[in-house]
């Protein structure tokens, strides 16, 4: 299949990109989700603005107690970055497992978050780490916690004229890990769980269990209240109601949440 007719512009600066978005263009990051949707004609934006030529959107650097990751940084770069691997391992690990090698060469961290696919691994990993995004629009710049960014299936709290410019990862999430379960190696996760053990206790988040990445509050509170890992695993799915589909029933997915939370916690603890 092939995309519908569209107008393409390539932004060379953030201001240009923002102006195009304000004028109604759909931001095109790595295109690993948007392009297939356009080819299947599930998406037919009349105009796209390519963010691939905006230098301020690429790169990874330390900024105080956070790591600043440009929104257009690829999964491959995130997965291989020593800073992220050391200080926010869960995100590097999740990035290393997205799609295939070829997809990781193009797909971006900002694109993953903005696309808000409920099966995307990175949003859960970043949520588990306690990350945030910096967005910019005509109203200026603001910071949104990742937990407040994705609101539903393929839906975010971004205003129509806003772009994610940066992802902020806390440096205190080195003791963290991501575990996921999928059918084939290349497939989207059925369920994925990120766990981070930091100064403020355990944070855990999952995808595949709702219309957006979800914090595993019961799992967290058992562990943060001094409970056992077994109890935490047993309660991990509490409050969640994933829909049954070809990948498995509600019960199966809830079971997987516990299994994966246990695996991720064990791996995080050993780091």
């Amino acid at each position: 299949m092939i995309p519908s007719t569209l107008e393409y512009t390539k932004a060379t600066s953030l201001d240009e990109a923002l102006a195009a978005v304000k004028a109604g263009a759909r931001p095109l990051a790595g295109g690993m989700s948007l392009m297939p949707m356009m080819r299947l004609r599930l998406a037919a934006p009349g105009a796209v603005v390519d963010l691939g030529g905006v230098p301020e959107l690429v790169g990874i650097c330390e900024d105080g107690d956070e790591i600043a990751v440009g929104a257009m940084t690829t999964h491959r770069s995130v997965a291989n970055d020593p800073l992220i691997r050391q200080h926010c391992h869960v995100v590097a690990q999740a990035a290393a497992g997205v799609g295939s090698m070829t997809i990781r060469n193009r797909g971006t961290i900002g694109g993953s978050l903005a696309h808000a696919d409920p099966h995307g691994d990175l949003p859960a990993a970043i949520l588990a780490a306690g990350g945030a995004v910096i967005v910019r629009g005509s109203g200026g710049e603001r910071r949104i916690d990742v937990g407040d960014l994705i609101t539903s299936y393929l839906t975010t709290s971004l205003a129509e004229d806003e772009l994610i410019t940066q992802v902020r990862l806390p440096k205190g999430a080195g003791q963290s890990a991501y575990a996921k379960f999928h059918r084939r190696a290349i497939d989207w996760s059925i369920v994925g769980v990120g766990v981070s053990i930091g100064a403020n206790g355990v944070r855990a988040a999952a995808i595949g269990v709702g219309d957006r990445p979800m914090r595993l509050s019961a799992f967290e509170s058992v562990l943060n209240g001094g409970g056992s890992l077994d109890d935490a695993i047993a309660q991990a799915g509490e409050g969640l109601s994933p829909l049954g589909d070809l990948d498995g029933s509600t019960e199966y997915k809830l079971h997987l949440v516990g299994v994966l939370a246990g695996q991720a916690h064990a791996e995080a603890s050993s780091r």
């Binding site: 299947l40 059918r183 084939r184 190696a185 497939d187 989207w188 070809l246």
Partner: peptide, 26 residues
């Protein structure tokens, strides 16, 4: 891995290689 699935009302639920799982080397 593989199964071609229809919904009861006749819709194809495995119309792409994302849903129809041809295995890879991995």
């Amino acid at each position: 891995f593989e199964e071609t699935v229809y919904s009861e009302d006749g819709h194809m639920l495995t119309p792409t290689l994302v849903e129809y799982l041809v295995p890879s080397a991995a």
